[in-house]
Design a protein around this nucleic acid. Structure first.
Lengths: 337, 337
DNA sequence: TCGAAAAATGCAAGCGCTTACATTGGCCGC
DNA sequence: GCGGCCAATGTAAGCGCTTGCATTTTTCGA
């Protein structure tokens, strides 16, 4: 072993006076090696600072102990919590997580998925269900297990751990209407490649319709995902006529941006205008007034996704998709019209 | 090629009627293959949905095109922005990022670093400089390039892209004192394995001392890192006597938690008590009153770290450590005593 | 105490890829 | 028309590890 390079299994084996197979078994099937030998080997492992070479292992065993996740962005707290839980659950099973972000670009998502797969990801966590056809083709022909999160969808041949964005948005809008609001507007993330945003919009529209309000002329401002975007959108809506008395936001970040902007331009929340969010991230409790929003069990979603992927890897087929419940959290930003 | 398994280089080679070496060269040194052949090969690659096997590649070439990052937690926006920038910069160079989180536990950090290295990480982004001796030993004996971020430190033999937490905290405290505050308290993250927290505390103490105030009896409440923690700590401080007129928080999350709690218990900010944060994440502009804080160029830090790591990988040794400047952002949460 | 079964360990063949070196074939100048 | 050179491609030897099977050692009942 060249001292500038990593020690290998063989180095350990030679130093410990055993065969490389025995060293390998110390790592993979410790029970099959007698304690005395195992301890001696492990001592040498420590001494040499040996770490198994991932490539060699993946090549020989055809397993990588790696899962991948492609999320739209890491900057947004909305995904952070779920991914953190995903990672923790995987880590418990000795599996490493590879994270990549697509920047909400489907083409980039495709590339990232390819990259993760060739990195050896045994399975993938994906956000939502709207992606390029070729992406699905790739996943299918390569038999990559994946679980779709953050939404439920019609496709039945894939694993899903999500919640019903449409239903949740419907319930929330219902609540807003029950508070007496009739002039309702919406701030949404771009929905072109974002089924969560699309479903939320649909939910709002459906609730409006069912309440006998015009769903077609629901004012919607579509923006990217930052706080500042939410503020700008809010300002635009305030210039509309008739001015909305309630603004339903596609997520908490946009809602927080809207509230912050409202203060700047002197619109009192919730006295003049009510605002609602979606996700119930920490931010929702920090803004003043506190945000009425839809609580999403992000952590449970991440954990469940991890478990499903691990089950698939271990050949347990009993694992199935399931839908998590959301709930409406009433706080101060929603008040009677 | 079994149709249930991934196509290999040989499958491509056979189908295209060339040798595996030629296919390999199409990927790695396209210029060395004549255009006609290359196109034919690439067509087959598409047809078969071939993706190079990372393990095989890493094994044969001894390169992985992968960098790793170990951060304390993904849940915290403080790291998210910097890591996002890090990832984007790496992606431009065709390098994949592996992220792991340590939960602020040095032992776990060691394990995660080992895991990333055995996954083939060519380099590592690490947060801060306080970690186990054995971790540094491992890094050193294995010749793993790493860059330390989020702080500057005394060690000169490693690459650093950070800012001076002590200096920044000093300047901020100075500012607080200039506003007339004499009863100052602090809420900090646990500093045992967290040099950023420690340096910030030291900076505060030094400023106090230089202003002729007693640094030794600075009330400090130490907590984990969540919003709720910040709130609890604030409540505790408010029961102290004499009651502080300014609370310096170790980061924006704690500060936001403190502000939120202040409202709950009826303490007016900044009229009765001023509060400051650190980091200048989005949250700082959302809380009411807006947070006076230290702006940290997270994105630039992430980008610079990526560039350094790429330079090291490419054998450019000219890259060196550097210190980024922070600045104080005055907002509404700090007012005269 | 002996032999058979069980437990522990060793042997060696790849896993998919890169790459140094060998081979082929086409083109040049003379 | 021929030798020599270069560009294009092929050959084959590993990279570090796992694992089925072979071999050695231990255990234990009779």
């Amino acid at each position: 072993m060249n001292k500038a390079s990593k020690p290998t299994l063989d180095d350990v084996a030679k130093t410990a006076g055993v065969s490389s197979a025995t060293v390998s078994r110390c790592f993979n099937e410790p029970d099959r090696v007698v304690a005395a030998t195992r301890e001696r080997v492990m001592r040498v492992v420590d001494e040499l600072g040996y770490t198994p070479h991932f490539g060699g292992r993946a090549l020989a065993s055809n397993r990588s102990n790696t899962m991948g996740a492609v999320i739209p962005t890491m900057e947004n707290a909305i995904f952070a919590r779920g991914i953190q839980a995903f990672q923790e659950t995987l880590a418990e099973a000795g599996v490493t997580l590879l994270v990549a972000s697509s920047g909400y670009d489907p083409e980039r998502e495709f590339e990232q998925i390819r990259a993760l797969v060739s990195q050896g990801a045994d399975g993938l966590l994906l956000i939502g269900s709207s992606r390029l056809e070729k992406t699905y083709n790739f996943l299918r022909t390569r038999h990559i297990p994946y679980v779709i999160t953050w939404n439920v969808c019609a496709e039945t041949d894939c694993f899903i751990v999500g919640f019903d964005n449409r239903k949740a948005a419907y319930a929330l809008t219902r609540k807003v209407i029950d508070f007496g609001h009739r002039q309702i507007a919406m701030i949404s993330a771009a929905s072109e490649f974002n089924d969560r945003a699309r479903d939320r919009i649909e939910g709002v529209r459906a609730a409006l319709r069912d309440a006998g309000l015009s769903a077609e002329q629901l004012p919607i401002v579509t923006v990217p995902y930052s706080l500042a975007d939410g503020g700008r959108a809010f300002e635009e809506l305030m210039q509309g006529s008739p001015r909305p008395t309630a603004v339903i936001c596609g997520n908490d970040v946009l809602a927080a941006g809207a509230i912050t902007k409202a203060k700047e331009i002197g619109v009192r929340i919730p006295k003049e205008v009510s605002i609602t969010g979606f996700d119930d991230i920490e931010l929702a409790e920090v803004v003043e007034p506190k945000l009425t929003t839809v609580h999403v069990p992000h952590r449970r979603m991440g954990e469940a996704a991890a478990k499903i992927l691990l089950d698939i890897r271990d050949g347990k087929t009993e694992c199935h998709s399931f839908e998590l419940e959301t709930s409406i959290i009433l706080r101060d930003s929603l008040a009677p019209a």
